[in-house]
């Protein structure tokens, strides 16, 4: 704004007052110096040393495991630095394919389209998860504990628009969709409509990360959404899915024994076979300790059958 006014000749500046300018600069320097000085010395040292960097990005479902693992891994391998970024499964797969990242995180499988574009993508499964259909706790407590696949589908298509149509209170449904490249959406839409790219004309909001979706559902008192089971909590309740005459609850046990219908692998995507530091890190994730982190993050480890069995949602993020 100052710029515009100066440009338009609304204000003008004349000769300087060097005392004030120097004082002003000092003020700014002291204000920022507190951070710059300790940082700078460390920075110079590190820059001189150099290190291996593993760049990781993608699914916000896989992200908590990898962030936790990266923290532990780095304390044991100080010369390897791991940066982790969110963005979604699409970002992870594209990033790995194009070399922008060393490891892409994906909470869905690589599509044929993506496989075609990036020939050498390699997938390592590090855990299993399920996508639950979740509702605001108010709706859950008002009695909507289960929905059938057909009902959820109709809600997303906009054919059911009020909770009373499915046994809830007389309140419009706030249908929450996700950005189209998100892994959670692929898996969920594939379950509902047999098409991972199905449109959801009934949607009211579109969110990105698991965190964002969780927050929007918690802030609302009449929302429905799709969420990794690790994100369920007291404000965001997972509902049972009514299928074939029985109700299947979104619990880790039901995912483990294969009954819950919307399960998925948590994948690490690399361009070609993992090698070097990347392999070291992936091996760590597959080790007993790494798999324990998978369980701690609220998911199902793939290699350790003795992993703690507990109800999904008890884990607080």
């Amino acid at each position: 704004m100052f710029w515009e006014r100066l440009y338009l000749g609304m204000i003008s500046m004349s000769r300087q007052n060097s005392g004030k300018i120097i004082l002003g600069m000092l003020l700014v320097l002291f204000g920022t110096g507190a951070w710059v000085l300790p940082g700078l010395s460390g920075w110079v040292q590190v820059f001189a040393q150099g290190s291996t960097v593993i760049r990781i990005a993608g699914s916000t479902t896989v992200l908590p495991i990898v962030s936790r693992a990266a923290e532990r891994f780095q304390s044991r391998h100080p010369s390897i630095k791991i940066t982790v970024n969110a963005g979604g499964s699409g970002v992870g797969i594209h990033g790995a394919g194009t070399g922008r990242f060393d490891i892409g995180l994906a909470s869905r499988e690589i599509t044929p389209n993506e496989n075609q574009r990036y020939a050498s993508l390699h997938t390592t499964v590090i855990g299993r998860d399920a996508v639950a259909c979740v509702v605001s706790s108010e709706i859950f407590h008002a009695g909507v504990r289960t929905l059938s696949k057909r009902q959820i589908g109709y809600i997303y298509l906009g054919k059911i628009t009020n909770w009373k149509q499915v046994g809830g209170p007389d309140r419009p449904i706030v249908v929450i969709d996700k950005e189209t490249h998100r892994g959670t959406r692929h898996v969920f839409m594939h379950y509902l409509f047999g098409n991972s790219k199905a449109r959801a004309p009934g949607a009211r909001l579109v969110t990105g990360s698991n965190n964002e979706e969780q927050a929007k559902i918690a802030q609302s008192d009449s929302a429905i959404g799709m969420l990794s089971i690790a994100w369920m909590n007291e404000d965001v309740a997972g509902i049972g899915i009514h299928e074939g005459g029985q109700v299947i609850q979104p619990t880790l046990d039901n995912v483990r024994n294969g009954r819950f219908p919307i399960a998925r692998n948590l994948n690490l995507i690399t361009a070609g076979q993992p090698a070097g530091a990347v392999k070291l890190f992936i091996d760590y994730l597959l080790s007993e300790e790494g798999q324990r982190l998978v369980a701690e993050s609220g998911y199902i480890p793939i290699h350790s059958p003795h992993a703690v069995s507990r109800v999904a949602g008890s884990h607080s993020k």
Partner: peptide, 8 residues
């Protein structure tokens, strides 16, 4: 998002 301190 995470794992970043100072650029190296």
């Amino acid at each position: 998002f995470s794992g970043v301190d100072l650029p190296q």
